[in-house]
Simulated assay, not measured.
Amino acid sequence: MILTVTPNPAIDWTVTTDTFAFDAVNVATESTREASGKGINVSVALRRNGVPTRALFPAGGGTGVFMREQLAGMGVDAVVVPSGAEVRTNITLRVPGHAGTKINEPGAPLGEDLAQRLIDAVRVVLSEALAASDGVTTLALCGSLPPGAPEGFHPALVRLGRELGAAVVVDASGEVLSRALAAGPGLVKPNVHELAAETGRELRTVGDVVDAAREVLTRGSGAVLASLGADGMVYVDAGHALHGWARDVRVLNTVGAGDASLAGFLAARDGGAEPAGCLASAILYASSAVGHTTTLFDVDPELRDRITVTDAPDTTRPLSEPAKG
């Protein structure tokens, strides 16, 4: 079972227009609202593809009710910790010819009391899951922290997961990622820009990414899963350095592709796959996701034949989207 924790959940409001102009009235051709936030997105993708999961997050008010009802309608088991505050709204503007423009609210403050109640809730849910499971139970800590969050929030959850015997995954960036690394998570999932920022390196080639990932291993993580956009993904642990990519993928919307890739990786690992199979699954999920206009997607099995994973990466291969630390 995979338990996702989203300390800063959101309602994703996606608005599509045929054209867009500032200082003018723009008419939407489509508008959708979805329960979201990185960990929630991961749980939704897992549930849609038959993988056991629970999504834990704080929420309150009418938007909290909306989140709970939406997830229930999708069959996602939600563990809602009452926050007394409305859930933020993130806006995505889709205009033909553009990948998507986002406007994200910061989220309701996460004070010491609520942070501790989230940690206590994770302990209860994770303990129950571990007691009922004869396989790997994963704790995935996903997304940004809202204002006021204690600096020790992620390290405390990483240590809790390790203490209880769960496989701990962190999908975060900046200082949140740095602090979590010191507690020793089993896997971190930065994108190429987050990896560059974490290591202070300039990443221009696949080899640069592999080297930066190896540096992150020395800082406490057991493995690194790095997403490179159109250049695929790299997975590095003590015994592997893998590069995978897909070809001829239709791209309609890149929002949520990183969450989809993590879901794919965890789904395969939950099923007992080796790292190469997990990486291929991550790319399959991400490639399926970008072909949809919202974050809701089903895996497209026809994409499997377009995915390549190698354990001998071409370290000189240039990145189409280099990153500076």
Rank of each mutant, 00 (worst) to 15 (best):
N8G: 07
A10Y: 05
I11N: 09
I11S: 09
T16H: 15
F22V: 13
A24D: 15
T29S: 15
T32Q: 12
E34R: 15
I40E: 02
R47V: 07
R47I: 03
N49K: 12
N49H: 15
A59R: 06
G61P: 00
G62E: 14
T63Q: 12
A72Q: 09
D77H: 15
A78H: 00
V79R: 10
V80A: 10
P82T: 09
N90W: 01
H98E: 09
A99N: 13
G100V: 03
L110T: 10
R117K: 01
V122C: 03
R123V: 06
S127I: 03
V136Y: 06
T138V: 15
C142H: 11
G143K: 05
S144M: 00
P150E: 02
A156H: 08
V158R: 08
V158L: 06
L160V: 06
V169C: 10
V169W: 09
V170L: 14
A172M: 04
A172H: 02
E175Q: 13
V176K: 02
S178E: 15
S178D: 15
A180G: 04
L181P: 14
G184Q: 13
N191C: 04
V216C: 11
L217I: 10
T218M: 11
S221H: 15
G222I: 14
L225F: 04
S227W: 00
S227G: 01
V236H: 09
H240Q: 12
A241H: 04
L242T: 02
L242E: 02
H243K: 07
R247N: 14
D248I: 08
D248N: 13
V249S: 04
V255L: 14
D259F: 01
S261K: 03
L262Q: 13
G264S: 06
A268G: 05
G271W: 11
A273N: 11
A273R: 15
S281L: 05
A282T: 02
I283F: 04
A286K: 00
A286L: 02
A286R: 00
S288V: 12
P301L: 06
P301W: 09
P301R: 09
R304W: 07
R304Q: 10
D305Y: 01
T316P: 11
P318A: 01
G325H: 01
